[in-house]
Write a protein that binds this DNA or RNA. Structure first.
Length: 849
RNA sequence: GCGAAAGUGGCGGAACUGGCAGACGCGCCAGACUUAGGAUCUGGUACCCGAGAGGGUAUGGGGGUUCGAGUCCCUCCUUUCGCACCA
């Protein structure tokens, strides 16, 4: 057998897998399915080893599941729309479609050279019209159900480039391209009504038992449910307010309402404009309010901003106390949360406290720990804790929680308030004034208003674009043939929507499309969806913990409500893999610390790279790249190679193998190690996803096989003593038997990590049909268990001796043996044995004195 | 500020429900085989005392529960991540 040349094996087996279409699957209800998915890739150009970790983890699981007898769906695709390609086009003039296709081709080659077991026939790219057609179809279904709607909202606006900026494109409060301070503008945008599912998305997190706790907490915080009440504060006509009416506030602390000594409006609040007109100095009023609004996004990026505010001069009435309270405008009140107005309770809210002290507004203490009235003079900070109500009229003496219930009822009875639930989660704005995305399939007609493009006219294709300037509004508005259409309803002249969809729409349902990616009548056939979905195992970076994973959970519910699927959660198990660092930093082109996988593949082959990345740390952890570690993995594979080489001769003739052959001690020990390794590796991969310890278990088995080879006088595999080994073991059927069992198991368990080497060695061990025909090794729990075990004996908590005993030794017998053991007696001599604790099969603990 | 996770040899990391801390690998040291080896194999490698047998100390610091704690509880420190004026 030739020396280990992994590069040749890579080529050989990758070609074979492609020719035999080894990983293509079809739905087969007679077999259990397993849908293994790694987050699809943004085709940025070249993948570095950090990107690849994700795919290797998925591949180890997928390949193991194949061998475990599952019908495994393991597809891959490209999240191909997006800003970087368009920005590159603005710089270089190369059309995003061209650069994207180039990048896809390159990255696909990288994944194939790594030997990832993808069903390439199902490959998709979101920039294919055959894919984004269904974005549009889904958008229209959502529009019909009121889940897609238009709304005016505040966006970041660069006055120089005349374009909307995503939050990520605002750098230190300025435009990322020209540095101009960003303004806030109100624009009509398309939204998805994700808030309709806020409660459900939150509640269901408790059923996601196979998701990382961390991701669930992040989602829970993001959704941010808080229970409270709306309360109406009537405007005080005596203060000269422009109209009758009220200010509605949202509060989670209605129990403190007797301490509400003023009301705060956010600068966006509709009443602010009305008050401005009626104020003594309308221009000054507007100027201040405007200043707050400009402050908002820009200032928040750069850290804390000082609490500022001004008195409107108008008043409202606290409906509980009946007292008039001044109305102020404050920069820290958010327009988009609650009602955009708050009742200020300076005694019990830190922000209100600071505000009151700064502007000398009254502070009333209405909740105390002991139920006794207190003055506010000596307070240095707010007292937000729950307690007993004081100076709160008929509610005085109640505990905070009790009071919240009673006061909400009281308000409801008088029609001035009601209990409510608020979410931090906002509706999802999906309009982008960009070219490289899915056109929103809507038409504006002067007569018929907003009209959806009829299904039979889908897809609305992205037109070619002559120039990428990066200036002005939506680039699609520059293409008259695209914009000017006839209204599908009345046939009159109409305009197309020129915004495109957020690319997160594309990635929110691609896992459904994989079930049936060429369907041209539906997003996917319901029967295929029913068989393959939900995804059993999903791998990706934590950076998607919130956006992508919440949007996908939202889309799953939309699919459900449209009747396409009958589940609610798309991903049963989620694994968030850690990043690969180099020199302590995330790999990135700009930092120049990128490790190029192709260089590594040329040097060590795909298997060593895969094995190293799996072995270096548990999948969720961050790892520091090490060339030396990679070499270690290469050495290990060479070691396995030589081991198989060493035994290939004796094992060639399997007829000498006899399962009933009597085993000597060494044989038994090897057999036990083999079975125990199968047990450990199976559990590590399938249940714990602890792939690093699975690899170390395999290394232990290899070490054991090397020792065994020495002991059985067949010589060391290190020295290629092939001929000698063959004759020496010819008549030793039991040796052949246990070694064959060990190597067969070893090679099959190694295969998910190192598939090329695995296939080659499996063949060399005399098996036909390749690993796709091989089954995962089984283990016998009785064999895996040791006959003789070592029991440590502690005296006063310190290990003083070790007993080697049969595994089934009784507790009484263990106690007797321990106390009679000379090293133990040396420590118990002359002392009183107070207590003996026997943990069966584990340890004996003796307490003396 | 709020929330979450994590602190174990020179390094990456093991230790399943409390039960021999440091598996496995990297690095390092010694030996073997070699013309040579940066190939390969074998042995060693937490720290301190001791020639040795052996003894002592160790899982961020301090305290607690327990026959027994890396693991459970309290407290403090550090690091990383997420949300950050959410009323």
């Amino acid at each position: 057998m030739p020396d280990y040349h992994p590069q040749d094996l890579d080529r050989k087996w990758q070609l074979r897998w492609a020719e035999s279409r080894a990983f293509e699957v079809s739905a087969d209800p007679s077999r259990p399915k397993f849908y293994c998915l790694e987050m699809f890739a943004y085709p940025s150009g070249h993948a570095h080893v950090g990107h690849l970790r994700n795919y290797i983890i998925g591949d180890v699981v997928a390949r193991t599941k194949w061998m475990r007898g599952y019908n495994v769906l393991h597809p891959f695709g490209w999240d191909a729309f997006g800003l970087p390609a368009e920005n590159a086009a603005i710089k270089s003039g190369i059309h995003p479609e061209v650069s994207t296709r180039d990048n896809i081709a390159h990255m696909k080659g990288q994944l194939q050279r790594l030997g990832i077991s993808y069903a390439w026939e199902r490959e998709l790219a979101t920039c294919d019209a055959e894919y984004y057609k269904w974005n549009q179809w889904l958008f229209i279904r959502m529009f019909e159900r009121g889940l897609a709607f238009r709304k005016k909202s505040s966006v970041n606006w660069c006055p120089v480039d005349k374009t909307v900026l995503a939050n990520e494109q605002v750098v230190d409060g300025g435009c990322w391209r020209c540095g101009t301070p960003v303004e806030t503008r109100d624009l009509e945008q398309w939204f998805f009504k994700i808030t309709a599912y806020a409660d459900e998305l939150l509640d269901a997190t408790k059923h996601l038992t196979r998701w990382p706790e961390k991701v669930l907490t992040m989602q829970q915080n993001w959704i941010g449910r808080s229970e409270g009440a709306y309360v109406k504060f009537p405007l005080d006509p005596e203060s000269g307010v422009p109209s009758a009416g009220h200010i509605e506030v949202f509060t989670t602390r209605i129990d403190t309402i007797f301490g509400a000594t003023f009301v705060l409006l956010g600068p966006e609040h509709p009443l602010v404009a009305q008050f401005a007109e009626r104020s003594k100095d309308p221009a000054g009023f507007k100027r201040q309010a405007h200043a707050f609004r400009m402050q908002d996004r820009a200032a928040r990026m750069s850290g804390d901003i000082e609490k500022q505010g001004f008195d409107t001069g108008f008043r409202a009435t606290n409906p509980f106390t009946g007292q008039a309270v001044p109305i102020w405008v404050a920069n820290f009140v958010l327009g988009e949360y609650g009602t955009g107005a708050v009742m200020a309770v300076p005694a019990h809210d830190q922000r209100d406290f600071e505000f009151a002290r700064k502007f000398n507004l009254p502070i009333r203490v209405v909740v105390t720990p002991d139920g006794r009235s207190a003055a506010s003079d000596s307070m240095t900070e707010a007292a937000p804790a729950y307690g007993t109500l004081v100076d709160s009229g008929e509610f005085s003496g109640l505990g905070s929680e009790d009071a919240q219930k009673r006061m909400t009822e009281w308000a409801l009875g008088r029609g001035i308030g009601e209990g409510t639930v608020q979410f931090r989660l906002k509706d999802w704005g999906i309009s982008r004034q960009r070219y490289w995305g899915t056109p929103i399939p809507m038409i504006y007609c002067d007569r018929d208003g907003i009209v959806a493009v009829p299904d039979d006219q889908l897809p609305v294709r992205l037109p070619p674009l002559a120039q990428f300037t990066g200036r002005g509004d939506s680039p699609l508005a520059q293409v008259p043939e695209f914009v000017n259409v006839t209204c599908p309803r009345c046939g009159g002249p109409a305009r197309r929507e020129t915004d495109t969809m957020d690319t997160f729409v594309d990635s929110s349902w691609y896992f459904y499309r994989f079930a049936d990616p060429r369907n041209d009548a539906k997003p996917a056939d319901p029967a295929a969806l029913k068989y393959w979905l939900p995804v059993d195992f999903y791998v990706g970076g934590v950076e998607h913990a919130i956006l992508h994973l919440i949007y996908s959970r939202f889309f799953a519910r939309v699919f459900r409500d449209i009747g396409l699927v009958d589940h609610s959660e798309p991903f049963t198990q989620l694994l968030t893999q850690g990043m690969v660092l180099k020199d302590g930093a995330v790999m990135s082109k700009s930092k120049g610390n990128v490790v190029d996988p192709d260089t590594m593949l040329q040097k060590y082959g795909a298997d060593a790279l895969r094995l190293y990345v799996m072995f270096v740390a548990p999948p969720e952890k961050e790892v520091e790249w090490s060339d030396a570690g990679l070499e270690g993995s290469f050495r290990f594979l060479s070691r396995v190679w030589r081991l198989v080489d060493h035994w290939a001769g004796p094992l060639a003739d399997r007829s000498t193998q006899r399962d009933d052959a009597p085993l000597d001690a060494a044989g038994k020990a090897l057999r036990r190690k083999t079975h125990d390794t199968v047990r450990r590796v199976t559990m590590d991969i399938e249940q714990r996803q602890q792939l690093n310890t699975a690899v170390s278990a395999l290394m232990e088995l290899v070490n054991e096989l090397y020792s065994f080879s020495e002991e059985t006088a067949t010589g060391s595999p290190a020295r290629h003593a092939t001929a000698g080994a063959a004759s020496a073991t010819q008549e030793r059927a039991e040796v052949v038997t246990v070694v064959a069992e060990a190597l067969d198991a070893l090679v099959r368990m190694l295969a998910p990590f190192a598939p090329h080497t695995g296939e080659e060695l499996w063949e060399r061990l005399g098996h036909r049909g390749g690993l796709s025909a091989a089954r995962w090794p089984a283990f016998d729990a009785a064999v895996a268990k040791a006959e003789q075990i070592v029991i440590p004996v502690q005296v006063n908590g310190k290990v003083r001796s070790r007993l080697t005993v049969p595994a089934d030794t009784t507790e009484a017998e263990l106690e007797r043996l321990a106390l009679a053991d000379p090293p133990v007696m040396a420590h118990t001599h002359g002392k009183t044995v107070r207590k003996v604790v026997v943990a069966k099969g584990r340890l004996v603990s003796v307490v003396v004195q």
